[in-house]
Design a protein around this nucleic acid. Structure first.
Lengths: 201, 201
DNA sequence: GTAAATAATCTAACACCGTTAAGCAAATGT
DNA sequence: ACATTTGCTTAACGGTGTTAGATTATTTAC
């Protein structure tokens, strides 16, 4: 039965083709246009077979969320490894986060923006925790006066995240506002530097 | 025809009863549970009559958004009038904003959180502009070196808003996180003071 | 090779959604 | 008393996520 592997590989292929189709629809028509039947259309099947690969629509969204965190994690990891000094690491990592939000707008909306309701599941997602762990580590290394408590790190982490997520939200929501890109980058970097400086003061 | 006024008043009553019903459903079951038929059930009518009072579902949401901005505007105005010094005004206003977000969670989600997609309509809402105008005015008064450009105000406005909206989002999304209320309030006030200080440096 | 068993896929349906059109019944105007 | 308008309902359309049953294709067993 050497064909068993081939069949398993085929199943894996259509599984990812479902995810690709979903992502494709979202990128061209937005989240609200994503429907099971439309996904089925695109992979040239009928809707019910999707339920052989995912428990329901939310299952697809969850898997896409995981994908998003993998991409984000890779970007942040690379930004971190591109620098030596913690201060530079930190700025580069948050800029990577910022860039991810705009180059993968749909992912970011899924991960942080779209429906504030659910989100209970995502708490226990390995990939998400990896991202916050990386950021937390660098934040810890920013403190000169050791030892550092968990709460210290947590507080600074939320401070960073808040201003960056806030800036991103506002810019995703109002892309045609009066703010220019340079202005935003300036706000972003100023804010990062400000928080970073405030850590040892 | 003295009854004409009475009839008009009745119509206005059911109009607000529609809004009240919608709000009630959202508060008890969340935004995703809001449907025209459920609203109709609650006001003891059938769904189609709602369309005599609102053009569509989004019309209801828009009116609720307006209501939200009225409440928020009142809170911010009062916070402003409770203090003399611009620095105190600013802090009180943003704390009012913060408190609004949590005491009127559903409104805040509607105004800033739920579906990042549309939002094109809300740009031209009088009530929303009043709020940002109030905040902008106080921000302007914080600058000691006049004259101030529109861009200066805009930038600081976005900086304030970003960090506060970011903090709120994160706390609305992850209410059971490791952050305590005091910690959040500390982050909030620290951030406000930080931005305020940075204005004249 | 043929028959039974299993897997893959589809059709049809359910219950819900937002929305619209047609119809009915009561109140109103003439 | 008749015609007209008003208030409201029922029924329907096209869409959604999801499930059950039938159908077809493939694999297995003899």
């Amino acid at each position: 039965m050497g064909s068993k592997e081939r069949i398993l590989r085929l199943k894996e292929e259509t599984r990812t083709s479902i995810l690709d189709a979903a992502l494709n629809i979202v990128q061209t028509e937005g989240w609200q246009a994503l429907s099971m039947r439309k996904i089925a259309d695109q992979i040239e099947y009928t809707a019910p077979i999707i339920y052989e690969y995912f428990p329901n629509k939310e299952g697809i969204l969850l898997e896409l969320t995981r994908r998003g965190y993998q991409i984000l994690g890779k970007a942040i990891r690379e930004a971190r490894d591109d620098h030596e000094k913690p201060e530079d690491k930190m700025e580069a990592m948050w800029v990577a986060y910022w860039n991810f939000a705009f180059s993968h707008k749909e992912f970011y909306q899924l991960m942080y923006g779209v429906d504030m309701v659910c989100c209970t599941v995502k708490n226990s997602m390995q990939e998400a925790e990896q991202v916050s762990a990386m950021l937390g580590d660098v934040i810890e290394s920013l403190f000169k006066n050791k030892p550092v408590t968990e709460d210290d790190i947590c507080m600074k982490y939320y401070t960073y995240w808040s201003i960056i997520h806030g800036l991103i939200s506002i810019n995703l929501v109002r892309p045609n506002g009066r703010t220019t890109d340079e202005l935003n980058q300036q706000i972003l970097k100023d804010a990062i530097k400000g928080i970073t400086l405030s850590i040892n003061s």
